[in-house]
Simulated assay, not measured.
Amino acid sequence: MQTQEISLSNLLEIGWAKGMSYQQYRLLVQKLALEKKSTGPIQTESLIDYTMLNDRRMKRWDKVLKLDDETVLKIKKVNQRINWLVLTESWCGDASPALPVMNKISELNPNISFKILLRDENLELMNQFLTNGSMSIPKLISFDATDKDVMGTWGSRSKAATELVEDFKREHGELTAEFKQNLQIWYNKDKGNSILKDLLSLLSLK
């Protein structure tokens, strides 16, 4: 057990050192979209299309995302130094509404630091944080900045979005392209609130 804890601590430390800032990640996705490429070892037309879509979506989320005054005050009260490390890829549709919310929170409080890692370049760390045995992304790991103790995780979707997905899977077996498009419409109507609610709970803020 002790060896596993040291191993995870080391993985988090290595991952944090390699991690990109949100601004660096946005520039990377923007560049890939222009070049008609995606992150990851596999380049397919659909992954490239999703990368281009996500670039546009994140650009819009960065502009329209607003937090109310009460929420801002709650976030500013966090006095523990926390690192948020998220594993994702440029083509991940659920990341496009989530990463801007994470970034907005971290911008409001210097005690919350936020970095991004590419999943397929960090499989050893990803395998420590599987969701029902799957490498689902985005996956946010929240850990103490000093002692590297994991405080919690989030992903790959908000609880509200996960319920929608599970209901659809029960009825239809698998997610369709039409459902994925409808889920993005739902995210837009939700305005990031379900993601924000989950992340505030992760920070022990109600």
Rank of each mutant, 00 (worst) to 15 (best):
I82D: 11
L12I: 00
E163K: 10
P41V: 05
F129C: 09
L99F: 03
K59A: 14
S136P: 09
S9M: 13
P41M: 06
S194N: 05
K180R: 14
T176C: 04
G173A: 01
M52V: 14
L200E: 09
Q43C: 01
D55S: 12
G192Q: 03
T3L: 12
W186S: 11
I75K: 04
T153S: 06
K18I: 05
N127A: 02
V165Q: 10
I42Y: 08
L118Y: 03
D144W: 04
D68I: 03
D62A: 02
N127I: 04
V72K: 08
S204I: 07
D144S: 04
V86E: 10
D69P: 12
K76V: 00
Q4N: 11
G173D: 01
S142F: 00
R60F: 05
N83V: 02
S204T: 12
L27Q: 13
T39C: 08
L125N: 07
L125F: 02
D198V: 00
K104D: 03
T71S: 12
Y22P: 15
I82A: 13
G15V: 05
K18R: 15
D147S: 10
K18E: 11
Y187I: 00
I185T: 14
V150N: 07
K206I: 08
T146C: 14
A33E: 10
A160E: 01
G19H: 03
A95I: 01
W16N: 08
Q181W: 02
S201V: 12
D190E: 01
G40F: 02
N188C: 08
I116Y: 01
F143E: 08
K169M: 08
K63W: 04
A17L: 11
W16Y: 08
F143I: 05
T39A: 10
T146F: 13
S204M: 09
Y25D: 03
L203S: 10
K139W: 02
L125Y: 05
L53Y: 15
M102G: 08
I14Y: 01
K148S: 15
Q43W: 00
R56I: 12
T162D: 13
K31T: 09
N83I: 00
Y187V: 03
D120L: 09
K115R: 13
L123G: 10
L32T: 04
V165L: 11
K180Q: 11
I75Y: 06
S201R: 09
S113P: 04
K63S: 13
Y22G: 15
D49A: 15
I185N: 14
T146R: 12
K66A: 05
S9H: 11
V64H: 11
F179N: 02
E166G: 01
K59Y: 13
I14T: 04
K36E: 15
R81M: 05
A33Y: 04
M135G: 14
L99C: 09
Q128Y: 01
N182G: 14
K18N: 14
L32Y: 04
T39L: 08
D69C: 06
A145Y: 04
S134C: 15
